[in-house]
Structures are given as C-alpha cells and as structure tokens.
Amino acid sequence: MNLLTVSGSPHVYTEESVSKIMYGVLFSLIPAALVSFYFFGLAAIMVTLTAIVSCMFFEFIIQKYLIKGPVTIFDGSAVITGALLAFIVPASLPLWMVVIGSLVSIGMAKMTFGGLGKNIFNPALVGRVFLMISFPVEMNMYPKPTSFSTQLTDIITGPTPLAVVKEGVAQGEKVSDLLPEVPEYVSLLMGNMGGSVGEISALAILLGGIYMLIRKIITWEIPASYLGSVMILAGILWMIDPEVYVDPLFHLITGGLMLGAIYMATDMVTSPMSRWGMIVYGIGCGFLTIVIRIFGAYPEGVAFAILIMNAFVPLINRGFKPKRFGEEVKNG
C-alpha cells in the first residue's frame, strides 16, 4: 500500500480554481466580443487577438527569462488582461500600439508588482491610460459602427456620443439639440455607437455580468454601487438643469461605464475584500466618473476613476473590516 497522506483539515476542497475563474470571465466576454465583431468587423478581431497574444507573449518572456520562475501563461489571467485591454481601445488603433499597450499592462502594471494577485492597479486600465497619454490622436479616433466589414484601413471615424455631448455643451449648445445627433437609446443599448472595441453594447456586457453573478465570480456590490451612484449623481445634476447636464440613462449606456463597472472595477485583485468596502469603492468610482465626465478634460472618466480608486483599496481594506461575529453590538 502507498504511504498515507497527512495534512491539516479540511480534507475536501472546492472544484473552483484560479484558471476556472479566469476562463469563466473570458467566457462571459463572448457576447460583448460578438457585438463588436459585428459592428467593427475584422479590425476588432485583429486588435483583440493581437492584445491577447502579445500579453501572453510578454508574460512568458518575463516569467521565463527575467524572473526565471514558473511560467503561468495558461492560467488565463494574461488572456483576460489582453482581452480587456483590447476592449477599451478603439478598433482602429494601429496594431503596434496595441502591442505596446500589452507590454505596459503586463510588464509595468502586473509583473513588476510580483505577478498575478500582487498588482495594485488594474493592468488593462494602466495599459489603456498609457496609450491614451502617449497616442492621444489615435486613441481618440473611434471608428463608426457599420455592419460587418473586413476593412482594415480608411475606416470612417467619429466622436463617441459622450464626446458629442460634452463638446457641444462646452460650446454652449443645448442638450436637447445635441441628443438627435447621437443614435437612439435602444440603438445605443445594442451597441450601435462609436467607441472602444468591447464597450459599445451595454446589453451584451450586462449579459456577461449576469453570467458572472450566477457563477459567483463577481458579487453584486461593486457594479450596483458604481452604477447606482452614477445614476444618482447624474440624476441630481440633470434635475438641476436638463439642458446642460445630460440625463442619467445616457451616462449609463454610453462610454465604458458598463464595461468598467462589471469587468474593471470588479477585478478581484484590485478591489476591496469586505462588503462595505466594496460599496464604498463602487460609490467612489461612480463619483469620480461623473466628476471627470462632466467637469474634467476628458469626455470619458471610467478608466481614471477606477485607477484612482484602486489606489485607495488598501486603505479601504483597512478601514472597512467585515462584521466580526460576536462583536460588541449596541443594546446587547
């Protein structure tokens, strides 16, 4: 007979594993990917594949030759970083820029901190922000959605709905005059608007979010508090002056908010641990998003909002502990 094994209790373990979670997230991204492939065509597919492959490649290079440690490129985390990075850049972005973004995501935001689980900032967002600052022109040219095209060059580009409204209002135009310039809300919900590869269809992203909620990959706290606080803040401003501030529903379904709230802010590594911590974090993200969108220089504030809140996560973890069992309760 073989030697008996001795180990500390418990002796049963869940079926869940890191790579199962990662591939679960990847699976949930399929609807959003399909929508973008439909609207942006081959360009979107190329950007996505380039980002995924280059992220895995850089992780491999760094783990194998720089750290000389175990190579874990198939645990799914690099794939997700790649996919998410691709989802938040324009489909028209030159592929070499995508590669640079991947290098920054993996090399700077993830591996320098010690790899999976050790990073403070969401790698994909760091990559995007880096690109946005380095290549502002290319990063602000969004291709117009068409039904499936195989065109890779000479794509017609235009501003995102958020940019249309923001610039219009800045030039003194009224919101009611600007809204007809963007597609209808139902159309926006389906993803028929200019924007980054994967962020266009709020509906497809919601679908993925629901799958992740059922799989218990994410919890409801962050998306709910994030979207809720955006709704409330935008709603207050809208009620003050509907001609200057656009209505909350518009904020909800345009730009990268849905993708950010469901995929970026909920990134396990860079979000708080306790329930109340998550809610505070979500509200912070929502508040910053609206502040940047309405008062900031950029039309879109999701990436900055989440990165700023990422920096506060250690502090939130310290301040918002889970409720301990048997803690001193008021009134006994």
């Binding site: 874990t72 050790k118 979000s271 641990m273 306790s274 889970p322 069992f325």
Partner: peptide, 18 residues
C-alpha cells in the same frame, strides 16, 4: 497559486474574519 484577493475566504468565514 498566488492569492488573487478574490475575498471568498472573507465572505464565507462564519466568524467574520479575514
């Protein structure tokens, strides 16, 4: 593997610990 800080341990701890 590395801790991915998913927070599941904290959410299922019956004593509310981390």
């Amino acid at each position: 593997h590395n801790c991915i800080r998913c927070g599941r341990c904290a959410s299922i701890c019956p004593m509310g610990l981390e």
